[in-house]
Design a protein around this nucleic acid. Structure first.
Lengths: 149, 149
DNA sequence: ATATATCGTTAGCCATGCTAACGACCTCCC
DNA sequence: GGGAGGTCGTTAGCATGGCTAACGATATAT
């Protein structure tokens, strides 16, 4: 098999595997009671610290009006809080509440637990091989980023 | 490092790698002019052959009314066709048109081209390791499917 | 023949994505 | 000081996609 042909084949399988993996894991996220966009935004706020609404929109690759609504929803659920900026009063900072931290931690626990329990069934040798594979995927993704289509 | 701890760690990295991989690839799909749900449904129809609307809904993990609308959209674009069933007239079969096949093939080409070119930069040895890793991911996903949360 | 089950559609709800337009605010420059 | 123009977040309005409930047509079982 030529290297090019092999790469195509592998690319296809990698793509498919990623889709199916995330499809399974998304089911866990449903248990949080939060939609995917809200969960993702909350995650950024929790791990990235307080951000302005615009920064959050860029991080989530979404337009400001969309983020306004997502944040409004999260705020209504008591998971984040808006805070004004004293120096530049156009800005709105978004920070997670304790409840937001808790919800996110629980969701991550569910997700990782399910995946980790499946991963944990592998033999030690396979675990090492998988780790190597994941590292390669990360390299591949990094090499794709920022490139023209 | 204990095996359990290692599994959790690896699960987290695998999850993250999958998310970032798909985020990059989705940009290619935008070029098809089709939304993600339509593209995905079309893919199932093209590769899975003619299906009834209900089968398609189940394959896409979506309710029938949702699939009705997706198929209606695809049909309006001339990518699929509805066909009645002579024996059971409640059924609606959905099949891809030649145009549907073409569009999908072009999209897959764009996506695979980008991913394959990144994958193709790996050394032969790494390619084999990645292939092994992908297989392990498939096993892991398979072992998760159908399990309680 | 009648009751029951299945299939796809319609109607109507909510969330999420967008662009356009706006008010409030900051900054720069005269 | 006072505009002119830029930036930030919001509002308004549109399209798509997810759902449940309800329905008509058809098939199947009793």
């Amino acid at each position: 098999m030529t290297k090019g042909r092999e790469s195509e084949d592998l690319a296809d399988q990698l793509h498919s595997a990623a889709i199916h993996l995330l499809r399974q894991l998304r089911k866990e996220d449903d248990a949080s009671g939060l939609s995917a966009p809200r969960l993702s935004a909350l995650s950024v706020v929790v791990f990235g610290g307080p951000l302005t609404l615009g920064e959050l929109a860029r991080a989530e690759q979404v337009r400001p009006p969309t983020m306004t609504r997502i944040v409004t929803g999260l705020e209504k659920d008591g998971l984040v809080k808006r805070k004004g900026d004293a120096r530049d009063r156009r800005l709105t900072h978004v920070e997670a509440t304790p409840k937001g931290h808790k919800i996110l931690a629980a969701g991550r626990a569910r997700r990782v637990e399910k995946l980790a329990s499946a991963v944990g069934q592998l033999k030690r040798k396979e675990l090492a091989e998988l780790r190597q594979g994941v590292q390669l995927v990360r390299d591949v993704v990094a090499s794709m980023r920022g490139k023209p289509a």
